[in-house]
Amino acid sequence: MSLNQIERAQGLRIRSTQDFAGGLFMILLAIGAYVFSWELPAGTLRQLGPGMLPKAFAAICGLLGLMLSLSALRYHGEKLAGWSWRGIFFALGGACLFGLTIRGFEFGPIRVPALGLMVAGPLLIFFSGLAADDRKLPELLIFAVAMSAACILLFKYALSLPIPLAPWLLGI
């Protein structure tokens, strides 16, 4: 009996958690897309409606997800690895901070004035830089200022993109 047959004889179990989770993920996405396009008329083949393709694609996605999950029961593959929450929090959080502060925003009682690139830039670099394991705060601080200055020169002056610099200070 070859190794494969022995494996098969041991019955179904999840042999690749990564593929299995990937399949479930596709199925979930497909169900989500299907539910949200429920209201859209699919139309007929003669006259495709707005809902036809989203539903068709969602159905295929779901089917592929199912196949992927099932194949994970049979074939060996990668294991699911852990997440790095720190990277997500600092790097993506930094980007969100940039979005919030560049032109300011208002959300209920919270109010952030438009701070412009002069503040949003260093903020983004400093905050996201905290995600690195080997971060060095003084170095990061200097880099945040220098890099932002370079970006201001490049994007605002050399490329003249309409990006606010510091409306609260300079009025531009």
Partner: peptide
Amino acid sequence: RLMFPAILIFCCIGIYSVNNQPLDVA
């Protein structure tokens, strides 16, 4: 540790400039 913040700020400025929409960054 210095390269990725630089990549991020390039991306952020870029996305913001496509439509001048801060929401796009989020």
